[in-house]
Amino acid sequence: MSRTGIATGPNALRGIVMMCLGMACLAINDAFAKYLTDVYSPVQILFLRNLIALPFAVIIAVRLGGWDAMRTRRPGLHLLRGTLWLAAATLFFTGLRYLGLAEATVLIFAAPVIITGISALFLGETVGWRRWSAVLVGLVGVIVVVRPGGDAFQAASLFPLATAFLYAILMISSRWVPAEESLWTTMVFQVLAAGALAGLASLWFWTPVALSDLWLFIGIALAGTLGMTLITEAFRFSEAAVVAPFDYTALIWATLLGYLIWNETPDAMTWLGAAIIIGSGIFIILREARPG
């Protein structure tokens, strides 16, 4: 145990490594999605991704959570969460068509800031002046990246911002998932609900899948499922305050993949905004982890 009251040691290190690897997998997932959006609609990509991922999600859930992981008492809640996840992912994949991978990823980092604001304004949670200050600082970081009204402003940046908002609501909704249902139950039913909804929506946007693209759909399914599994396991091995800040390593992977595949390089203002958003997010995470 460190002086800050946050657990450290082998389990913490294992959790950190899993979190970093999980974020790398999700960055690969996003890179596959960005590549595929040149040909396929986001909802078709998400349908095929979830269709391929569902058997793997079930196997993982049963192996780690037992057959009880396949039962739920709140199917309506999982349907709602699947709808939120599908809407968020569709908006993000749409944004990837027009934005660099790193730039879109930066704006997703606004989610912890949004969660804090929603919790205080609409859920009646007590948020002190320090966290309110972090929220305001985080919003300044978003403005620095988006640059509304400036020559560098891109309307497409609103897509990942909307994604961050929906993701924040999705995370808050997890509080109403029954305590007896495991994370694996949530994962399976989220994949199932989002996949079914995406399948219906993709009927209006369907493009025949080229055989040469099948490996990309398999890759996005495996990378996304593995990423979420590693992140879930990271939180099992260590406290949230230890591993959650390493969520931001996604920017490293996104920047690297964006440069290697599309020769994308974030500009100085994007890096500045990223530093501000990440700093405020880490402060909120650590502040919420403090006892009392």
Rank of each mutant, 00 (worst) to 15 (best):
G5H: 09
T8R: 08
A12T: 10
L13H: 06
G15D: 03
G15T: 08
I16M: 08
M23I: 05
M23K: 02
A24R: 06
L26W: 08
L26I: 15
K34P: 04
I45W: 01
N50S: 15
L51G: 09
A53P: 09
F56E: 00
F56I: 12
V58N: 00
I59D: 00
A61R: 04
G66E: 06
G66Y: 11
M70T: 11
T72M: 05
R73Y: 02
G76L: 15
L79E: 00
L80V: 14
R81W: 01
R81Y: 01
T83R: 02
A89V: 11
F93A: 09
L96C: 06
R97F: 07
A102C: 07
T105Y: 02
L107V: 10
L107Q: 10
L107D: 11
L107S: 10
I115V: 15
I115N: 01
A120F: 07
F122W: 10
G124T: 13
E125H: 04
V127T: 13
V127L: 14
R130C: 04
G138L: 05
V142M: 00
V144N: 01
P148Y: 07
G150D: 09
D151E: 15
Q154M: 13
L158N: 07
A162N: 02
F165A: 12
Y167F: 14
A168F: 06
S174D: 01
V177L: 00
E180G: 02
Q190S: 15
V191K: 10
V191G: 10
A193Q: 08
A193H: 10
G195E: 05
A196L: 15
G199N: 12
F205G: 07
W206H: 11
P208C: 04
A210H: 12
D213K: 07
L216W: 13
L216I: 08
I220C: 09
A221W: 06
L222M: 11
L222C: 07
A223C: 04
A223H: 02
M228R: 12
L230H: 07
E233K: 15
A234D: 06
A234T: 12
F237A: 14
A240I: 14
A240S: 15
A241N: 11
V242H: 06
V243Y: 11
P245L: 08
D247N: 14
T249V: 10
T249I: 05
T249S: 13
I252K: 00
W253N: 03
W253L: 07
L256A: 15
G258H: 06
G258R: 03
L260T: 12
W262G: 10
T265R: 12
D267A: 11
M269N: 05
W271Y: 14
L272S: 11
G273L: 00
A274Y: 08
F283G: 01
I284M: 11
L286Q: 14
L286F: 09
R287K: 03
